[in-house]
Amino acid sequence: MKKIAFIGAGSMAESIISGIVQANVLENDDIIVTNKSNKERVERLEEKYLITSMQDKADVVRDADVVVLATKPYDLEAAVNSIKEHIKQDQLLVSVIAGISTDYIASLTGQDIPVIRAMPNTSASIGYSATAISAGAFAKEAHIVTAKELFDTIGTTIIVEEEDMHIVTGISGSGPAYIYYLVEAMEKAAIDSGLDQEIAKALITQTVRGAGEMLKQSGDSAEVLREKITSPAGTTQAGIEALKENDFDRIVRSCVESARDRSIELGKKNG
């Protein structure tokens, strides 16, 4: 991969661009970005990451090996229409748009073009994305390898069947927001109990980071790790019981399922 073009300049596109720049896998000026109309936004990205911004769609995609579709779902059709006459079959389309199938994206181009569907998350900006990818009908092994190499620069990449992408969206795509929401609640509880805000933030941040590393490095399941620190009649047990009494498991399940269902809905509404 020598050149990559981003159609769409929102937070996900920026997260991926930031990760690629930090990984130093491409020359900065070989990363090209455009969007529908917000010229100030793409110019800001150009200045911040020393990449290339353009408004002419033909110039954006002409020499790109990979074209990343990073628009809102309802903007996808217009975005593809604006570039499809410039797309060539030896290019790879990568979509990071929630809910939209590879078949639909290929149909919009009017070509039997390789499409990879990806669901990274915003932790891509610091190289810690959990990204799932799936291959469209015209994508070959080499295209999967290219996509995996791309997303490996910004975190961990897992290959899944496309039918699983809706639940992936509900788990890892939206997952960071759930964690942040939990942290918000913990910080508020700590502050309400009299702890200094900065102290609370530092302790909770390191707690979340440490728990993630334990899950990654220990080899134990989340259940086993939880049980190891939950002494009978102890403080952790009291906290866990409060979560159970308030139906924490049901709330989390509902959260994930709602995100999954919204992904399915977006797919039906937009192709």
Rank of each mutant, 00 (worst) to 15 (best):
M1N: 14
K2F: 15
A9P: 02
G10F: 10
M12A: 07
M12H: 07
A13S: 10
E14S: 01
E14C: 03
E14N: 02
I16Y: 15
I17W: 15
G19M: 08
I20K: 13
Q22K: 13
N28V: 04
N28P: 06
D29A: 09
N35S: 07
K36Y: 11
S37A: 07
K39F: 13
E40T: 08
E40N: 10
R44C: 06
R44K: 11
L45H: 08
L45R: 05
E46N: 14
K48L: 09
Y49V: 04
I51G: 01
T52H: 07
Q55R: 07
Q55I: 05
D59M: 14
R62G: 11
V66L: 13
V67Q: 06
K72V: 09
L76A: 05
A78W: 09
K84G: 05
K84L: 12
I87L: 15
K88M: 14
K88Y: 13
L92N: 02
L92W: 03
I97E: 03
I97P: 01
G99M: 04
S101W: 15
Y104T: 10
A106Q: 08
L108E: 13
D112P: 07
V115T: 04
V115S: 02
I116Y: 02
I116V: 06
M119T: 05
S123G: 11
S125K: 13
S125I: 09
G127L: 03
Y128H: 11
Y128A: 12
T131Q: 08
I133A: 07
A139V: 03
K140S: 07
A142G: 10
I144K: 11
I144H: 11
I154Y: 14
G155F: 13
G155Q: 13
T156C: 08
V160K: 06
M165A: 05
I167H: 09
G170F: 04
I171T: 06
E184I: 05
A185Y: 01
A190H: 02
G194E: 15
D196Q: 00
A200E: 06
L203G: 06
L203D: 04
Q206G: 12
R209M: 12
G210C: 00
A211E: 00
M214V: 05
G219A: 05
G219W: 06
L225V: 01
R226D: 04
R226F: 02
R226Q: 13
E227I: 08
E227A: 14
I229R: 04
T236I: 03
T236L: 05
Q237D: 14
E241T: 15
D247Y: 00
F248H: 00
F248V: 00
V252F: 06
V252R: 00
E257K: 13
E257P: 03
A259C: 10
R262S: 11
R262V: 09
N270K: 10
